[in-house]
Design a protein around this nucleic acid. Structure first.
Lengths: 342, 342
DNA sequence: CTGAAAGCGCTTACAG
DNA sequence: CTGAAAGCGCTTACAG
């Protein structure tokens, strides 16, 4: 069964494909094509199972109704959920999405951007890895709109939609302080990205505002692709020292760290929250069923996803506006569970 | 900055676009184009940042180098991980993937198939929802290849790659039996799909082979979009009866059920594995950090993903073969942790 | 009201 | 060895 084209319908009906195109695009009225003919065309299209060739349309109109998504890893539930929201909002506007996992690797994201470019996507939603500034700058020079999510580059003007990481970390740390924790550690990852840095900064500011000193030994920066070993070592360092230096709480900057961290804490025979309190960024499903369900900073994934798509559609549909950038910093939600004690 | 086309390069160099096309496609040698000209073309292409328009190529050649993926929900880590493997294998073969979440809803998958069709994808990888037989049949009539994953329709001949669910459930149940559990329940979902049914059948067969009777009251079939309430009620029914009827173990047929189930079990104040043992399908990350890390049936996601893509590429690249279907039933891995006691 | 024609950016027979 | 031309399936000015 060959696919039917506009032309097939036209020939079948003995009319021009111009006409067929008009009515199938709902512009029959506009061109005052008789209802009778309209109906005949529509019926034939249905009967012959006509599916417009979007690629031909795209070539002709310069619009593919496709957007490209680059995130760190679609298998990471944080990005999976975000991807889902983006897919949903895109679909309800008639857009398809091509997804790419960069693994926070700028080489990969570069190649992926190029691939998406070749696919003539109408816009990009990108969670840019560190050291990808040049790629984003290059994108700015082109005319295809893009919006950055999760992080952005302060030195590059662009659309973005992120979360108030500083405030979130501040709040989380403050929560621990109010519960009497004094030796609060932060386990984070060596990504030189605004979002990650803001988390550690918010954490430190909370300590300072509470009148405590920031102890560098309490901040553990792990390599991005860390093993459980790395976390275990970090935790042992935090906990294996003299009593008055021992950490009594940990703020995990990502859920991946937190999940692995909690596994290690259990393996070490430590109890949460008695021996050590825990707060984590990102509301992973797993956190609900931990020994002590984990208090978390939850990001408004649906809002991020929807907004990212809508900003993009705005830009796609009114391309000639002076580039006024849309930039949002959303609030997070702090969900208290049992991992900090009371 | 407008995108540069083949023609731009040709004009810039004063040669024909035929020639440019040949050398850019690495067919310079083949057409005995002088090295000098080849180099000039390549240099110009690089300098002008030429990106081939894949959409124009697609229209001309009938190949888009894009595959369509339909799974239940990319936010579900099981499908997220699978999607990741598929993305990876596709990318390393020069393919992009458009992803769609059907929510196990045949209306959605129908629309998604149609959308992918319009996008002229070269092939589909589909985890078909129940009642989507007609869609898959329609696909069979077309010439675009597809492979089914996770489940398939026995009455429709097709490529597929699934897992031995019967055997996996048998093994899991047997494990519980050998540890002395007598009242083993199965909590599953009302999807009339081969994979789900095989899980319950394997469970029942294990009971029978062990000389036990199959107790219908021990099989709880929840609606697909269940609330925690539903699970809690099911568990109370299993556990709230007289001692000699009480379930002492549960086999969860999906990790979503298992995760929610464990949350409910904890909320009810029951201890795993002392009060009740637990085994689950799918190796969710969360299972590692449960109060009692959960014994699971792990699926070979990488193998499934790779194979699905490779089957597709095979079919795409040798389309005129007599349709000999490739069908794989892979073995699962049984990972023993602490949730069944010892 | 309807159709012939051009053209989007490619590839690929065909001709010389 | 190289180029002019056709054509993939559409849309859309233009003409009548």
């Amino acid at each position: 069964m060959k696919k039917t084209s506009l032309n097939d319908i036209a020939q079948h009906l003995g009319v021009s494909k111009t006409l067929v195109s008009f009515v199938l695009n709902g512009r029959g009225k506009e061109f005052r094509i008789s209802d009778e003919i309209c109906k005949k065309v529509m019926d034939a299209a249905k009967e012959m199972n006509y599916q417009p060739n979007r690629i031909a349309q795209g070539l002709r109109t310069g619009k593919t109704n496709t957007i490209g998504l680059i995130i760190a890893d679609i298998a990471n539930p944080f990005f999976g959920k975000l991807g889902r929201e983006i897919e949903q909002e895109a679909a309800s506007n008639g857009y398809s999405v091509i997804f790419c996992s960069s693994d926070e690797n700028p080489e990969k994201s570069k190649q992926q951007i190029s691939m998406l470019q070749q696919n003539q996507v109408d816009g990009y939603i990108i969670s840019p890895p560190m050291n990808s500034e040049s790629q984003i700058r290059a994108l700015s020079k082109g005319k295809t709109p893009f919006v950055l999510i999760d992080r952005y580059f302060p030195e590059i003007e662009s659309n973005y939609i992120v979360v108030d990481n500083f405030d979130a970390a501040y709040q989380a740390t403050n929560h621990l302080l109010k519960l009497g924790r004094k030796k609060i550690a932060n386990i984070t990852v060596n990504l030189d990205l605004v979002n990650m840095k803001a988390r550690t900064e918010g954490y430190q500011k909370a300590l300072i505002d509470f009148g405590l000193e920031v102890d560098k030994n309490l901040v553990k920066v792990l390599p991005f692709s860390h093993e459980n070993n790395d976390i275990t070592r970090a935790i042992i360092e935090l906990v294996g020292c003299k009593d008055d230096l021992k950490a009594d709480a940990i703020l995990f900057s990502t859920s991946k760290l937190g999940l692995n961290g909690i596994e290690c804490i259990s393996a070490l025979g430590l109890k949460i929250p008695d021996d050590i309190a825990v707060v984590s960024f990102d509301n992973a499903d797993a956190y609900k069923i931990c020994v002590s369900p984990v208090t978390v900073v939850a990001q408004p994934l649906q809002e991020i996803g929807k907004k990212a798509v809508n900003i993009l559609l705005d830009k796609i549909n009114s391309p000639d506006d002076i580039p006024k950038f849309q930039q949002y910093t959303l609030k997070t939600e702090f969900i208290v569970r049992k991992s900090c004690g009371s």
